[in-house]
Amino acid sequence: MLDTLRHVTTPELIELQLRPAGLLPRSLAWTIDFLIRMALLLCLIPLTSGLGRAGGGLWLLAYFLLDWFYPVFFEVWRQGATPGKKALGLMVVNDNGTPVGWGASFSRNLLRVADMLPMAYGCGLVTMLCHQEFRRLGDIVAGTLVVYREKPVALPALEKTAAIAPTEPLDRATQRALLAFAERAASLTPARQEELASLLPQLSQGSYGPQGAARLLGLASHLIGRRT
């Protein structure tokens, strides 16, 4: 299969679709996070250097925490996304589609050291490129996925056109195609609408040009049940 979509069945027997994110967006997200961490550590230097030797200890502690727990904190408390991932619209989820918890998030970030071997995320790169769902070693061990976070789409209202009853029964595929056409109509130029309508002479029934497209919209109106 070329499609990378992952289907997950919830206990309610509903199929959810997850879109795993590939190498490039994830590397970019990592780079953003890396820069943020570096900036934080650099900002801490003048603050801690005022405290003498104890400041040095404090800085090392901060470095340790940022190194191992920065992603864990954001993944558990900020809807599965570090600032970098959020910027690229990604999030970490368990492979059954549920949000990650402490254990899974900690495992996948602990395993970063294995992914970094032998250098520059070599292992992680290879496993990600070989894996159907772009998982690095940490993702495999923790059972997690990095997916695109989908924003809820606004429902485009179908254009108000008079409903036209079809003269003969339409099969499901045709109904679906008609609805899809009507929904996209708002984003298509009139010329393109007419061109598409002319591909379906049996539906537009001899009316070409603007009338053909209008007839298709009318049929769609009828399908969703408008009676005006």
Partner: peptide, 26 residues
């Protein structure tokens, strides 16, 4: 029932967020 794609997508998004909320509770 083959309702329009945008309706299905919208419901899918709602279900997914509800699912995260319900099953993601720590």
């Amino acid at each position: 029932r083959d309702y329009s794609l945008s309706l299905v997508e919208r419901l899918h998004a709602l279900v997914q967020q509800g699912h995260d909320l319900l099953y993601g509770a720590q």
